[in-house]
Simulated assay, not measured.
Amino acid sequence: MDDMKNITEVCRLLGITSRTIRYYEQLGLIKTVRKSNTAPRQLGTETIERLRRICFLRKLGMGLDDIADVIDSDVKAAELIKSKKAAMKTEINELVERVNLLTEVIAAAEQGENIYETEKRLSLPPDHEEMKRIAGECTKLILERRFDELQGYLDDDMRQMPPGFFEVSWNVHIKPCGAFVSIGEQSIVADTVINRLHFEKQDIAILIEVHAGIVTGMLLQYCKE
């Protein structure tokens, strides 16, 4: 016989409310049963598992209409998840661009520039050579462990990093790579300059985001050439 559980038990099991269960039933996503008109509503094992899957897809950010279309097919659910991930990556990229734009406008305002006039400057194509120059200088300072001099290139957010951050990063991530050998050719992807550093044991790529002559982000990756 199917192991039936009442709504209170299911709510405790899945961490949801009875209102959620009633709403999903109204939408036709699940069905509850009752042995008589006065008996409490219950859910069978298969329904509970179906409800668990619905809750999981909701946690991944799926809409109920989309869930209704894919809940009976694992293949369709997987395709929906892939589609959702792609859409979210696009949204993240757009948000990053917006944050970068806000950073530049705030910097202009702090320097007394009219914020509406910054649009003319920001609409200009990026100066890749200047970006490479700044990223190259920052990379050189890192290699020479002149971390204090980096501050003049960083935006306000990066200056808030804990004291000794670069020193710790050097000791933990760069020093184990062995002796420094050479710097590879620079490349640019969107607003990020990639400097490839060759070490005795392991190569490293330092990704440096540059906006309007200011470094807004750094990322270190191990790599192979």
Rank of each mutant, 00 (worst) to 15 (best):
V10N: 07
I16C: 14
S73I: 02
P40V: 06
K5V: 02
S73Y: 02
T47H: 00
I48E: 14
L27M: 14
V10D: 07
G63C: 10
L80M: 15
I48P: 01
S18W: 02
R50C: 01
V70S: 02
T17Q: 08
Y24V: 07
D72V: 01
T17C: 05
L60R: 12
R53L: 01
K82F: 01
K35G: 00
G28T: 14
I81S: 04
L14E: 10
A39Y: 09
F56W: 09
G63N: 15
I54C: 05
T8M: 05
I71Y: 05
R41A: 02
R22E: 09
A39G: 08
R52S: 15
K84Q: 03
E49C: 13
N37H: 12
A78E: 04
S18H: 05
L80A: 15
T38Q: 11
Y24P: 06
L51R: 06
T17P: 04
E25H: 07
K59E: 10
K85V: 12
A39C: 04
G44L: 09
V75K: 06
Q42K: 13
K76P: 07
L43E: 01
S18D: 10
I81P: 09
A68D: 01
E46C: 14
T20D: 07
D69V: 00
L29K: 10
I16H: 07
R41I: 01
E9R: 00
G28V: 03
R52W: 12
S18F: 02
I71L: 07
Y23N: 11
N37M: 01
G44K: 13
A77H: 08
L29M: 11
K59I: 04
V33Q: 07
V75Y: 00
L43W: 00
L51W: 02
I21F: 04
R58Y: 05
K35T: 11
R50Q: 03
K5P: 00
I54K: 05
I48M: 13
V33C: 03
K31T: 10
C55L: 07
I16E: 12
M88F: 13
I67W: 03
R53A: 01
R19T: 00
R12G: 00
M88N: 15
T45M: 04
G63F: 02
M88L: 15
I67E: 12
S83V: 03
L64A: 12
C55Q: 14
D65K: 09
I54G: 09
D66G: 06
G28Q: 14
D72N: 10
T20V: 06
D72W: 00
T38R: 02
G61N: 07
T45W: 10
I16S: 09
R50W: 03
L14K: 11
D72G: 06
A86K: 15
I81Q: 15
K76I: 05
L57M: 09
